[in-house]
C-alpha cells in the first residue's frame, strides 16, 4: 500500500505545476513547471513499484524531451506573444467547460470503481522488464525501432532547407572587399603597439600620430575613449610624465 502522505505530496507537485499550462504567460515558465510534473510522475512510478520506468521517465522526459522543448523555444524566440483574439466565438468558455466536464466525468467514474489490489506487487526491476521486453514483446520493440528511425529521418526532412544560392568562398569574400575599397587587412590594434596597454587609447603610428580608427566604435559611442593628444604632448615634452595628467 502507498503511504497517504507520499500520495498527497505527489499530487501537489504534479497538479499545481500542471495548472501553469493554463495560467502561465511565458512558455519558458510552462516548460519548467512541466519538468516538475515529470519529476513528480517519476516519483509516483517508483512508489507504484516501477523503479526502472521512473528512472526512464526522468532521463527521457525531464532530460531529453523538455530540454528539446526549451531548445525549440529559444529557436523561435522566447518572446513569442500569444494572441488573445478568439477565432471561434466563445472558444475559451467552450474549451474550459469541455475540459472540466471531461475531468469531472473521469473522476466520478473512476471514483466509483473498486478493484481488489494484488497482495504481491510486481516490481519492475530492470532485469524483469528486460526479459519481458525481449521475450514477450520483442516484435513490438522491433516496430518501435522502425518508428524511431522514421521519426528521426522525418525530423531531418522537415527542418532541412535547400541551399538557394551557391556558397560564397573565402576568395570571393576577399575579392569583394577589395573591390569596394575596404581595408584589405585588419585594422591596427589600439594602445598595445604604442605606450599603452589599454583598449581605450588609440595606437600611435611611427610618426607619433594617434590612429583614430584603432579604437573600437562601441567605446566611442559610450564615450569611454581617451584622446591621443595628452600622450603626444608627453612624447614631445619628455620632462612631463604621463602620470601627471
Amino acid at each position: 500500500m502507498v503511504s497517504p502522505v507520499l500520495f498527497w505530496i505527489i499530487a501537489a507537485i504534479t497538479v499545481i505545476p500542471a495548472l501553469s499550462l493554463l495560467f502561465a504567460r511565458k512558455a519558458v515558465h510552462v516548460a519548467m513547471s512541466v519538468v516538475l510534473v515529470m519529476v513528480g510522475l517519476a516519483t509516483a512510478y517508483v512508489t507504484l513499484g516501477a523503479p526502472f520506468l521512473g528512472m526512464v521517465q526522468i532521463v527521457v522526459y525531464t532530460g531529453a524531451v523538455m530540454m528539446l522543448f526549451l531548445f525549440v523555444l529559444m529557436l523561435v524566440g522566447v518572446d513569442q506573444r500569444e494572441d488573445l483574439k478568439e477565432t471561434i466565438k466563445g472558444q475559451r468558455w467552450i474549451g474550459l467547460f469541455t475540459a472540466a466536464g471531461l475531468g469531472a466525468f473521469l473522476v466520478s467514474v473512476v471514483g466509483r470503481v473498486s478493484i481488489a489490489v494484488a497482495d504481491t506487487p510486481a516490481v519492475g526491476e530492470p532485469d524483469v522488464v528486460a526479459i519481458m521486453l525481449f521475450e514477450k514483446y520483442v516484435l513490438v520493440i522491433e516496430v518501435l525501432g522502425f518508428l524511431l528511425i522514421t521519426a528521426a529521418v522525418g525530423a531531418l526532412v522537415l527542418t532541412h532547407t535547400p541551399r538557394l544560392r551557391p556558397r560564397r568562398t573565402q576568395l570571393e569574400v576577399q575579392r569583394d572587399r577589395v573591390l569596394v575599397g575596404a581595408d584589405p587587412v585588419n585594422k591596427p590594434m589600439p594602445g598595445v603597439y604604442a605606450r599603452h596597454n589599454a583598449l581605450d587609447v588609440p595606437a600611435l603610428d611611427p610618426q607619433g600620430e594617434p590612429i583614430v580608427h584603432s579604437v573600437s566604435r562601441v567605446l566611442k559611442v559610450r564615450s569611454q575613449t581617451q584622446e591621443g593628444e595628452e600622450f603626444r604632448a608627453a612624447l614631445e615634452d619628455p620632462s612631463r610624465k604621463e602620470g601627471d595628467r
Binding site: T14, A18, A31, R92, L96
Partner: peptide, 21 residues
C-alpha cells in the same frame, strides 16, 4: 490523479494558442 492531469492537459490543448504550450 491521472484523470485530473489528463483533464488539465486537454484544457491546455483546447485553450492555449501558442503551439508549443
Amino acid at each position: 490523479l491521472a484523470s485530473i492531469l489528463f483533464a488539465i492537459g486537454a484544457a491546455a490543448v483546447l485553450l492555449r494558442r501558442n503551439a508549443i504550450i
